[in-house]
Design a protein around this nucleic acid. Structure first.
Lengths: 210, 210
DNA sequence: GTCTATAAAGGGATAGAC
DNA sequence: GTCTATCCCTTTATAGAC
């Protein structure tokens, strides 16, 4: 929970600078390869100031990255925040969701965050849980609800909603994630994203259309 | 390529001990959190001996892990080494492949290796390429060939073979990988693996059976 | 709160003897 | 090839002045 609600308290610009610097550095180089000196230098602040705002390096890392996970808007378009289930036909909903999802996941920040969570997952279990909860967990639940609704309406014929949601997300994610996290290639073009989404929607609908 | 072919050269047991110790330590704790002292101690060897066998820490890590990637038998059962395409019906081949694949991927070593490659991918690009080539790349190519053969025979109706192969592998992998690499849960039971494979085969065949 | 300066510890790599 | 001992640098974290 960030405290920069801009209400009563005077927000510390130094603290913001530290957070910004640390976030970027951690995402780029990982926990172990970023020193407190580097963070202080990039934030243009003395190291002592960093320690006056954060207990130690671990706490700084975990606090910042948990926020980053929670702020990740993994739900695109119609799945945003409201709890209402979309009513548009599957092809449209799945396509929109896919484009938004891959837009976030395939971005350089998305990949970096993902990689970081996996890399430091064993050292920071809480971070992994936060990421999982705000990301895949939430999205698959929402999508599952939509699939259930469409099945009840007779448009789709899905048996295990959550499972099918996972399968769709899996098809979307895999080709990019694999290559990206391993670093075999650079960022993904809009065109490629479109092709992946089309292919996934196509396969999913062929399997689950009533 | 390991040089312990047991032919003419006298293999160094010290070196083997170093390799074994380093492999286990790196898989468990990552590159940054393992010191040369720790490796030497676990191998019951002096640190100088480590440096007489390996140039430096980076070279030790990359050499060992590349071997680990190359030795990963990611191709299960019928896809082993021979280049011949299996002839059994899709349900059987896909199920066998899935069980073997998840058996390797879901094992503690498989997860650790995967996590390590992702974590250090930006620091050791060659490692990522090796992993990708011997893992997903090879497997999806083999599976693609099989799908093409079955399509020619009129059993399946696949258009983009490689893409469909990826989709199947994606459905297999995702539910486990996500939770495992993030550390949300422990190892996967045989029963769960069976369920995931069944669900993936079912969806795939519903989408692609002629 | 913020700075400069420094303490305390650990890790990568090497020297030199055997 | 192997060992003990050690150099040198980086890094986390803190002391004390302003």
């Amino acid at each position: 929970m960030p405290d920069d609600l801009g209400q009563s308290q005077t927000v510390s610009p130094k603290r913001d600078a530290i957070v910004a610097a640390a976030t970027e550095l951690f995402l780029d180089h990982g926990f172990g390869d970023v020193s407190m000196d580097t963070i202080a230098a990039k934030a243009e602040v003395s190291k002592r100031t960093v320690y006056s705002h954060f207990e130690n390096k671990e706490q700084l890392f975990e606090g910042i990255m948990s926020d980053a996970c929670a702020c990740q808007a993994f739900l695109g378009g119609q799945f945003e925040e409201d709890t209402s289930v979309p009513v548009d036909p599957p092809e449209q909903v799945l396509t929109q969701l896919g484009l938004a999802f891959l837009g976030v996941l395939g971005s350089s920040e998305g990949v970096a965050l993902h990689r970081l969570v996996m890399a430091e997952g064993s050292k920071f279990p809480e971070l992994g849980k936060t990421f999982y909860e705000f990301g895949p967990e939430r999205l698959s639940r929402k999508l599952g609800e939509y699939l259930e609704d469409q099945t009840v309406k007779g448009v789709l014929r899905v048996e295990n909603f959550r499972e099918a949601a996972y399968q769709y997300l899996a098809m979307l994610t895999m080709p990019i994630m694999m290559e990206l996290t391993i670093g075999v290639r650079g960022p993904v073009s809009e065109k490629e994203i479109g092709e992946i989404v089309d292919a996934s929607v196509s396969t999913f609908l062929r399997a689950f259309t009533a």
